[in-house]
Measured scan of single mutants.
Amino acid sequence: MASQGTKRSYEQMETDGERQNATEIRASVGKMIDGIGRFYIQMCTELKLSDYEGRLIQNSLTIERMVLSAFDERRNKYLEEHPSAGKDPKKTGGPIYKRVDRKWMRELVLYDKEEIRRIWRQANNGDDATAGLTHMMIWHSNLNDTTYQRTRALVRTGMDPRMCSLMQGSTLPRRSGAAGAAVKGVGTMVMELIRMIKRGINDRNFWRGENGRKTRSAYERMCNILKGKFQTAAQRAMMDQVRESRNPGNAEIEDLIFLARSALILRGSVAHKSCLPACVYGPAVASGYDFEKEGYSLVGIDPFKLLQNSQVYSLIRPNENPAHKSQLVWMACNSAAFEDLRVLSFIRGTKVSPRGKLSTRGVQIASNENMDAMESSTLELRSRYWAIRTRSGGNTNQQRASAGQISVQPAFSVQRNLPFDKPTIMAAFTGNTEGRTSDMRAEIIRMMEGAKPEEMSFQGRGVFELSDERAANPIVPSFDMSNEGSYFFGDNAEEYDN
Rank of each mutant, 00 (worst) to 15 (best):
S3V: 15
K7C: 11
Q12W: 02
M13I: 06
E14T: 05
T15G: 07
R19G: 00
Q20I: 09
Q20T: 03
A22P: 05
I25G: 07
I25S: 01
G30Y: 05
G30T: 09
K31R: 02
K31N: 03
K31Q: 05
M32H: 10
D34K: 04
D34T: 15
R38M: 10
F39P: 00
Q42E: 08
Q42T: 05
M43N: 00
E46I: 02
L49R: 01
S50E: 03
Y52N: 02
E53W: 12
I57V: 05
Q58S: 05
S60A: 00
E64Q: 04
R65E: 10
A70D: 02
E73T: 04
R75I: 03
N76R: 02
E80Y: 02
E80I: 03
E81W: 15
A85S: 02
G86I: 13
K87I: 04
D88L: 12
P89T: 03
T92C: 03
G93I: 08
G94N: 06
I96W: 08
I96K: 06
V100F: 04
D101T: 00
R102M: 12
K103I: 14
E107T: 02
E107P: 07
Y111N: 12
Y111D: 03
D112F: 12
E114P: 08
E115G: 09
R118N: 07
I119A: 04
R121C: 09
A123M: 07
N125S: 05
N125D: 13
D127I: 01
A129Y: 05
T130L: 00
L133W: 12
T134G: 04
M137P: 03
H140F: 11
N144E: 11
T147Y: 10
Q149A: 11
Q149W: 15
T151Q: 06
R156F: 11
T157N: 01
T157F: 05
G158H: 00
M163P: 07
M163E: 07
Q168L: 13
Q168E: 09
G169Y: 02
S170E: 11
P173S: 03
R175L: 13
A178Q: 09
A178T: 13
A181F: 01
K184P: 04
V186D: 06
V186L: 01
T188W: 13
E192I: 10
L193K: 03
R195G: 09
M196G: 12
K198S: 15
R204H: 12
R208K: 12
G209A: 13
N211K: 06
N211M: 00
R213M: 03
R213F: 13
R213V: 07
Y219M: 04
M222E: 12
C223W: 05
K227C: 04
K229I: 04
F230K: 08
Q235I: 02
A237N: 15
M238H: 03
M238V: 13
M239K: 04
D240S: 09
Q241E: 14
V242A: 04
R243S: 04
S245E: 08
I253T: 14
I253L: 02
E254I: 12
E254A: 07
F258K: 10
L266V: 03
G268F: 12
H272G: 11
C275V: 07
P277F: 07
A278S: 12
A278K: 09
A278Y: 06
C279S: 12
P283F: 00
P283Y: 14
V285S: 04
A286I: 09
S287R: 02
Y289H: 01
Y289P: 09
Y289S: 02
Y289D: 09
D290L: 06
F291V: 08
E292H: 01
K293C: 09
E294W: 09
G300Q: 13
G300Y: 11
D302M: 03
D302F: 09
L307R: 13
Q308W: 02
N309W: 01
N309H: 03
Y313E: 06
L315K: 04
R317P: 13
E320H: 10
E320A: 08
N321T: 15
A323E: 04
Q327T: 12
V329I: 00
V329E: 12
W330V: 04
W330P: 05
W330T: 03
A332N: 08
F338A: 00
E339C: 13
L341G: 12
R342D: 15
L344N: 08
F346H: 13
G349T: 14
V352M: 05
P354C: 03
S359E: 00
N368D: 05
M371P: 00
A373W: 04
A373H: 03
M374W: 04
S376P: 12
Y385L: 00
N395Q: 13
R400V: 02
S402Q: 12
A403D: 09
A403E: 03
G404P: 04
P410W: 08
A411P: 08
S413E: 09
V414K: 06
R416L: 13
R416A: 08
N417E: 05
L418K: 06
L418G: 08
F420M: 15
P423F: 02
I425N: 09
M426T: 15
T430R: 00
N432H: 08
R436T: 01
I444V: 01
I445T: 06
G450M: 01
A451Q: 01
K452M: 01
E455W: 12
M456E: 06
S457Y: 08
S457Q: 00
R461T: 13
V463W: 09
E465D: 05
S467F: 00
R470T: 05
N473D: 08
N473V: 03
I475E: 09
I475S: 05
P477Q: 11
S478K: 03
S482C: 04
F489H: 10
N492F: 01
A493S: 02
E495L: 04
